[in-house]
Each structure stands twice: as C-alpha cells, then as structure tokens.
Computed example of a mutant assay.
Amino acid sequence: MDDVPELTRELVSIPSHEDETAAGDFIERWLREETDGEVTRDEAGSVFARTGDPTGPTLALVGHHDVVPPAEEQTKSGEYIVEERDGRLYGRGTADMKGAVAAAMCAFRDSEVPRTSDSSSGSRPRDAAPAGELVFVSFVGEESGGIGARHAIESGFAPEYAVVCEGSTNYSKQGVTDVVVAHKGRRGSTITARGTASHASEPEAGENAIYRASEAVDIVRGIDAPTATVLGNHLSGSVAVTEIEGGSAMNVIPDRCTVTVDERTVPGERAPIERVTELEGVEWAVDQDLPPMACSNDGFAERMLAAAREAQDGVSELVSKPHATDAGWLAEAGTACVVCGASEPGEAHTRNESVSLAVLDRCYRLYREAGEGFI
C-alpha cells in the first residue's frame, strides 16, 4: 500500500514525546479529509473514527501516537529525523508504533462502508448492509501507563473485539507477523520498613529498619511467581527486588528503609507480595499496575490468525508477548483482544529504532482483512 510509508513518515516526523497534541491534530485532520467515518476527539486527546453499524459487534483497530523521548541522534534542531535505508524507515516511533498506526488508518479508510458486491477493487464481495462497526482509535499516553485507554474505558469505550497494533513480527519465526493472544503485565510496588532511630553506638536502643526490610526481601525471594497458559502459550511471571534505600548517616540506626519490587504478572493470578505486611513495621503499596492480557474469545483469535495468514506468505502462529500494552486495559474491561503489528523484538525504544516497509504493507492488508470481516 503506497500510502502507508508516506503517512508513516509524516507521523514520525511530528514530535510527540512531551506533547501528543500535534500528532493527534494530524491524525484527526487526515481522518476527516480522507475518510467518511465519524471522527471524534475525547478530553484526553485520543482520536476515534467509526464506520458501519453501531448496533452490531464492534472491532477496534487500536494504536497510540505518543512515543518515548528520542535519542540525541534521532533529532536535529528539535525535529525528529526520519530516514529510509535498505527497505526500512528509521526514527523515533517508527516501530512503536506510528508505522502500525499509519497502516491501521489506511486500512480503516479502505474498509469503509458502503461496499458493493463488485470485488474488482480487491476487497471481497459482501452484502451492502454492514454487519457491525469498525473503529480506529489512536490513544494518548500509552507510554505513561495507558492514560488514553483508561480514560476512554472510563468514558464508556467498550468494543467487543480489538486488534491492538503493537509488535508481533518475528515472534514465532523470522519473516512472519504473528497474532499475540496473551501478554504479561507489570506491577511495580514499594515495601516500606519503619523502625526507631538511635545512635549506632547503642543499636539496641533503636529498631533497625534495614533489618526489617531484609526480612521482607527474604519473603519476596521465596515467592514462586504465578504461571498461566493461554491457547497453548505458557507464560511465567517473575518477582524481583530492584532497588533498596535506607539510612541517613553511618552512625545512625535507620528508622526507614524502602525496597522496590518489579513483578511481571500473568493472566489470572498475582504473586502474594502482601505477605510482607505480616512483619512488624512493614507496609506495602502498589505504585503501578499494568494489567496482563489473555484473549477471551478463541473464535476471534482463530479468525485473526486466518486474516494474518491470508495477508502473508509465511505461516503465522498464536503467540505470547513479554511486554504490557493497552490490550491489558481493554481485556480487563471485557474486550476480546489480540495484538498484531509491525514492530519486531528489540526495535522499540532504541537509538536505531526502525520498521520494515514490507511488514507495514503486510499489516495494512491484515488490518483491512480483519476490518472488512466486520462491516
């Protein structure tokens, strides 16, 4: 699809690591000019476009237009650099995930109703009356804990089905875009141990908060992280202490010590870190909880797998993903989700981030195949 590379270039060139407004403006304007869909913008800044019959089932093509801060070599005079080399586009946001957003935008445009039974355009024949609704959405704040997705869900956004266009390429094998049916989440938490300060020459006069924190760390080390299996894919969670801070001076018994815990969660169960609160003077608080995802509808997963295989020569598979996405928030709210997109392992958030132009075309065809099955 010739439009996708150029649209990707334009999107990537718009800085959106501090303020997503300009990128959202561009997406909204393009959708209004290039499609006949109903285009809206919510209070958070996320952009929506709808077509088809809202009384039928809804499929959402889901992306986000915020990015992480660029590396120094990815900008020049405050502008993002976009370069094409060896069949790939390089620049901040190419893989995560403006390339897939561009592919989904073009697929939404080209999947719109009304359609006729004439299949000369390359789309498959269908009845003129739509069977359901197709929605394109690009959220804000995905990199900041799903701000846009959470706002939309709280405001009533509840599609029955969603394709979240994050990376799924080269997961089962090289040269294939797969269909992710489950991914891990992340729960970050803080253990706070409190004691009583005293002079270090008389340690018995105080209660050492570091010692209490050490007991809590021992409990964390002994926890077996949960596991889950989703459509044949086995996910193993993990729990790790990643930071510890305590004490005020070398001659003072510390009255406070904090421990940071990174937990990778799986669908259905969490590690029982709250056990640490059974210790005297120890508290536990969750700082961030990005939910895991498991596709709740086997038929939808198989349908998307068929669309993925139709869009490429390689045989794609149902796979899992180690990273959290907005699919976690949607799945938690009741949407049947899969993740399917152009980004490859190791591309997102890197200094040489890039996306394959051939894979973007593949994703366009995949998203269009999926969309045309709903309207």
Rank of each mutant, 00 (worst) to 15 (best):
residue 2 D to C: 04
residue 5 P to T: 07
residue 8 T to W: 13
residue 9 R to W: 13
residue 10 E to S: 15
residue 11 L to I: 10
residue 11 L to C: 08
residue 11 L to Y: 11
residue 13 S to L: 05
residue 15 P to T: 02
residue 17 H to W: 15
residue 37 G to D: 04
residue 37 G to T: 12
residue 39 V to C: 08
residue 41 R to T: 13
residue 45 G to N: 08
residue 46 S to N: 06
residue 52 G to H: 10
residue 60 A to H: 05
residue 62 V to G: 00
residue 66 D to A: 01
residue 66 D to P: 01
residue 70 P to Q: 05
residue 71 A to Q: 10
residue 85 R to C: 01
residue 87 G to S: 03
residue 89 L to R: 05
residue 90 Y to D: 06
residue 97 M to E: 09
residue 100 A to K: 04
residue 109 R to L: 09
residue 110 D to K: 11
residue 121 S to I: 12
residue 132 G to E: 08
residue 133 E to F: 11
residue 138 S to W: 01
residue 163 V to D: 02
residue 168 S to G: 09
residue 176 V to K: 03
residue 179 V to A: 05
residue 197 A to W: 02
residue 198 S to Y: 05
residue 202 E to Q: 13
residue 205 A to Y: 01
residue 209 A to N: 08
residue 209 A to H: 09
residue 212 R to Y: 07
residue 230 V to K: 08
residue 236 S to Y: 09
residue 237 G to C: 12
residue 240 A to H: 14
residue 243 E to S: 13
residue 246 G to R: 12
residue 247 G to M: 11
residue 252 V to S: 14
residue 253 I to F: 11
residue 255 D to L: 06
residue 257 C to P: 02
residue 259 V to C: 07
residue 263 E to N: 14
residue 265 T to M: 04
residue 267 P to A: 07
residue 268 G to Y: 06
residue 273 I to T: 14
residue 276 V to D: 09
residue 278 E to C: 02
residue 279 L to W: 08
residue 279 L to C: 06
residue 290 L to W: 11
residue 301 A to T: 07
residue 311 A to D: 12
residue 312 Q to P: 09
residue 314 G to A: 15
residue 317 E to W: 02
residue 326 D to F: 04
residue 326 D to V: 10
residue 332 E to P: 01
residue 335 T to R: 05
residue 339 V to K: 08
residue 340 C to S: 15
residue 347 E to G: 00
residue 359 V to T: 15
residue 361 D to R: 13
residue 361 D to C: 00
residue 363 C to N: 15
residue 370 A to W: 03
residue 371 G to E: 09
